[in-house]
Design a protein around this nucleic acid. Structure first.
Length: 465
RNA sequence: GGGACCAUAGGGUAGCUUGGUCGAUCCUUUGGGCUUUGGGAGCCUGAGACUCCGGUUCGAAUCCGGGUGGUCCCA
């Protein structure tokens, strides 16, 4: 495979996911094909979220005074905020921030909504765009100035324990989503210097790109009562006392789509997991001058049968040669292709081609094609999952010598090292190796790789996006 | 945050060093027509570009400055 970033850029363009030529740095246009993929992913996420959350929609703009309330939080974002300063030619009395994230938009409203412990818990989410003035190099879908698809959840609880549990629930939901997309992930307890600004602690999902850099694809934060205090969110407890509740928030972005494309794609283009493929099966009728009618009617028959069983099916009857169609559908990552021509019709069969392996098999038209195709789709899903997980698992290498970390990681691996848990020691490791600590992966014993004191955690270290 | 490089049809490129021969090359793309269709079809005939602003010059795709956008490396 050519260099990863070039491949990624090409596939986004050729498969018509987004058009990144929009003339503002870090902003792109979602094209119909990409948007359909986005829609199917969102649908799956919404299905999971709706079980225990309510969807809402907050405004895009945040008054300066609200944004500035939480000191640590604002510090984390101040360099990246876009400001609206004018209405027409008139300068505004108060600058308005375009949300870099929505805590400071939502929490003042929580303060109005919450009066009693009976109002709790609150669990809401919204899917919105957010803007961040990135100063580093932007990359389509990975580092952007407009995050177009930010699904953020915010919860409020009476007890701290409930917030702890909610963080676990958030993680569980994201696991289900990533599993259905066959995206492998490592869950890290982020080091204190890399947690969400204002949070007690942050868990992050990291996946691995083909160039050996990790990509953060989801985060779950326990906010404690920090924001409740700042925004004066209080409830009257059963005992009549007024208390600050505890909060969590968690979010996913365009990066989920980026990782989906990057992880499964190959030199022919996209490879989409069946669960979110806008089209799951495409049928290519092979038509000669004569006999086209019969082939088409058979193809339509097959399509109807499949559609009745819930498949997303397409017939490609464009008047171009079949070879061109094959390349097109492979580029678009459609999981299954069916070829059906006069020769097949004679033998009462069709040909099924898998996108993930290119395996070609014949299938009699007398058989139960619904269950046959269903089993193909689940095989494809299993295969994608297995390949992707293998890739990330085999990249994880335990390292015991500080001097060898950089070399090992730059070879495309995620390093696992033992760490004492001391912040200064951790930052020292990052400085010495020129890499990023992703966070705690597990507990361990032995000695810290850097300070040689007692080790508490097995942590991951990698080159990150 | 520091540095390097780049910008020519929708995409990829040649031309730039040494300004004029550019009415700008080739591949791909694309409109129309005919013949075709089991892995990117062929022929005919059309379409499509010098990133923007300023400067030097008789003359700028080519030289200089700046803006915008992009790529990469280092912190």
């Amino acid at each position: 495979m050519e260099e990863f970033s070039q491949w990624f850029h090409n596939v986004l363009e050729e498969a018509e996911i987004i058009d990144s030529r929009y003339p503002i740095k870090g902003m792109s246009v979602w094209l119909p094909k990409g948007f359909k993929i986005r829609k199917h992913i969102l649908r799956e996420l919404e299905r999971l979220m709706d079980k225990d959350h309510d969807e809402v929609l907050f405004p895009l703009l945040i008054p300066e005074a609200e944004l500035a309330k939480e000191g640590i939080h604002v510090k984390g974002f101040e360099e990246e905020v876009y400001w609206v300063t004018h209405g027409g030619n008139k300068e505004l009395n108060e600058k308005l921030a375009i949300r870099p994230t929505s805590e400071t938009a939502i929490y003042p409203m929580f303060a109005l909504w919450i009066r009693s412990h009976i109002d709790l818990p609150i669990k809401i989410y919204q899917t919105v765009n957010t803007m961040r003035y990135e100063t580093k190099h932007t990359r389509p879908l990975i580092r952007v100035r407009e995050i177009t698809t930010f699904t953020e959840s915010h919860t409020v609880h009476e007890m701290y324990d409930e917030a702890i549990e909610q963080v676990k629930e958030g993680i569980a939901i994201y696991k289900q989503l990533f599993d259905s997309l066959a995206i492998p992930y490592l869950i890290h307890d982020r080091p204190s210097w890399d947690k969400f600004p204002g949070a007690d602690y942050t868990f992050a999902f990291d996946t691995l790109m083909k160039d050996g850099k990790t990509l953060q694809i989801g985060t779950v934060h326990n906010l404690g009562d920090t924001f409740a205090k700042t925004f004066d969110i209080k409830y009257e407890a059963a005992d009549g006392n007024h208390k600050h509740p505890y909060q969590t928030c968690y979010g996913l972005s365009d990066r989920v789509i980026a990782s989906l494309i990057a992880i499964h794609g190959d030199e022919k283009g996209l490879v989409l997991p069946p669960s979110i493929a806008p089209i799951q099966v495409t049928i290519v009728p092979i038509i000669f001058k004569d006999g086209g009618e019969e082939v088409l009617s058979k193809v339509n028959e097959v399509k109807d049968i499949l559609e009745e069983s819930g498949f997303r099916v397409n017939i490609d009857n464009r008047s171009i040669r079949p070879g061109k169609k094959y390349y097109d559908w492979e580029l678009n990552g459609i999981p299954l292709r069916i070829d059906l021509g006069p020769r097949d019709l004679q033998n009462n069969k069709m040909v099924i081609i898998r996108r993930d392996t290119f395996a070609k098999e014949e299938c009699s038209l007398n058989e139960d094609i619904v269950s046959i195709l269903n089993s193909y789709l689940s095989k494809i899903n299993d295969n994608l999952k297995e390949k992707a997980w293998n890739f990330i698992k085999t990249s994880m290498v335990e390292i015991t010598d500080l001097n060898k970390i950089e070399e090992t990681v730059l070879n495309g691996n995620i390093g696992l090292i033992k760490w004492c848990g001391d912040d200064d020691c951790g930052k020292e490791i990052e400085e010495k190796t020129n890499l990023d600590i992703l966070g705690k992966y597990d507990e361990t014993s032995g000695v810290c790789i850097n300070c040689k004191k007692e080790a508490k955690y097995l942590i991951s270290i990698a080159k990150t996006y």
